[in-house]
Design a protein around this nucleic acid. Sequence first.
DNA 1: CTGAAAGCGCTTACAG
DNA 2: CTGAAAGCGCTTACAG
Lengths: 324, 324
Amino acid sequence: MAKVTINDVAKKSGYGLGTVSRVISGDKSVKDSTREKILKTIEELHYVPNVNGARLRKKHSGVIAVLVPVINHPFFAEFVECLEHIAGKEGYSLILLTSQMDEQKEEDILWKIRKKEIDGAIFVTHYEHKNEDINGLPLVSIDRHLNHVVPFVSSNNYEATKEAIEYLISTGAKKIGFIGTKPFVESEVTLREKAYLDVMKEHNYTPYIVYEVVKHGEEKELVDKFIEKYPDVDAVFASGSSSSTYIYNKYVSMGKKFPEDIQLISYDGVFNSWEDAPIVTSIEQPIKEMAEQSFKILIDIINGKEVNQITLLKTKFVKGKTTK
Amino acid sequence: MAKVTINDVAKKSGYGLGTVSRVISGDKSVKDSTREKILKTIEELHYVPNVNGARLRKKHSGVIAVLVPVINHPFFAEFVECLEHIAGKEGYSLILLTSQMDEQKEEDILWKIRKKEIDGAIFVTHYEHKNEDINGLPLVSIDRHLNHVVPFVSSNNYEATKEAIEYLISTGAKKIGFIGTKPFVESEVTLREKAYLDVMKEHNYTPYIVYEVVKHGEEKELVDKFIEKYPDVDAVFASGSSSSTYIYNKYVSMGKKFPEDIQLISYDGVFNSWEDAPIVTSIEQPIKEMAEQSFKILIDIINGKEVNQITLLKTKFVKGKTTK
DNA sequence: CTGAAAGCGCTTACAG
DNA sequence: CTGAAAGCGCTTACAG
């Protein structure tokens, strides 16, 4: 049970450790008969290569990290799940970090790169970073253009929101409200509010808006506030799916009927598979594609390739039962 | 920008690399004035220790892994989130693996231990493992006694379910149904069905049960099947919270009133924070404590300490609006 | 196609 | 309190 190393395999098989290493890494330049013998020895000895030796020597780890504010949230959970799947398929391990309970995690992820624990990271950052801290590091940002250097992946927030609001107008909605969690920092997500305001202005509609910074998991407060402040709107746009179920239930319990009395559209369109079919009309983000793209871009950066700084992916308008 | 190593720090500061290493690791035996000088040099050089050198030498990685079937599920998401928080606080990195899309991940996690990528793992295993594959590895299982060697952490499934069913009986329920996802393998979770059947028998009640193996995310099928098969029950016990919202909505849409016409209790009691307050009466698992315990046990194993093979944590009965 | 050698960047007894 | 040396387990030019 003493740990067996590549040296033991070399000795027992009668070959040099270079050759053993080549067999392990799948190097083509090894004679078939040699490979077979070495493979047999590996089996006999129950040899398992130690990754830390390899990582030290090769100068990369085959590990990436993903940072999200929270994991128990439909969008982030789905995103991380997709990413884990892709990373696994491509032979990468995935380290998970959540930042809402501990801001420090955003720093941690940078340090993990510097100390060679990971080759790079994909993050949904909510805090500020100095350029000097992030420049040159293999990073991909979701929804946020950090410093015009770190590439980011997002959805077409502006256009999608604009279309949604215009759709509401086309159905005859007169008093259209907006409920949104304001990002801690400048981000693509802020374009949802901008699109809303732009359309309101264009049509000479009065905006009814509650848009504040709250933590994930506390979106309900905004909804309650909105309903109290603007009890008589006839349509609501919710920027973020996490509150849409709550909004829906709230109006139902007030005796309002969808879509006759009130309409609702939410961004994200993540509905938990254990709930009923999509009830709320929503702008569905291409989460899987976002995960694929951000992974691909990160790997390209790691491999020194050129990458696009901006990647905006198309959302899908999914009609549910909350709009006319 | 050439990478700076511990040697550079030693040279520039005028000390040996052993001393530099001691400063980095916080060894007390270094003179204060020496420490300061070396710290200053580290700063000047922007030196960041390479973990792979240390890991190779120290023979452990400071990384653990968690494996769950899926992450986009209230129980697992919450569990992983708690675990990530604890691991981070204790200086461990956490690798995430999800197995439902790819069974192979369960093997992967074992290999990661053998190749020294991680020091150990906590897993919610759904597949079979040979004893020879897992014995001696630092593992903690959730909800499942794999082989009477791997320690496991679970909740008091049997007692909690028994109490819940008896509660339903005490309120006058006569036709009590059970909807559950059957685990792929023997597990503590199977005790929920056993408790249900035991109570039914004891009271001479007829059991109405739908209990089948389905994937996470496909629990709805069981619900639909149950309702079709037993349309006239007056109480339902759902083993697993993931379908309780669906069950609730389903009966409501059928025109039934909770708790007058039908009662509902679900195991888990995870409700998403973005939904309304707990509506469904539930048996709430102490997820945070389960994460803490499994982490602690894993670290103890890694450090060669003795650990209990069985850890059953107490659930909490949370009365909602779906029971009398 | 294969071997011998150098070296990745650390830590840890050991000696003083 | 500190230094010099050995070694953790690999990979990769280099030479043949």
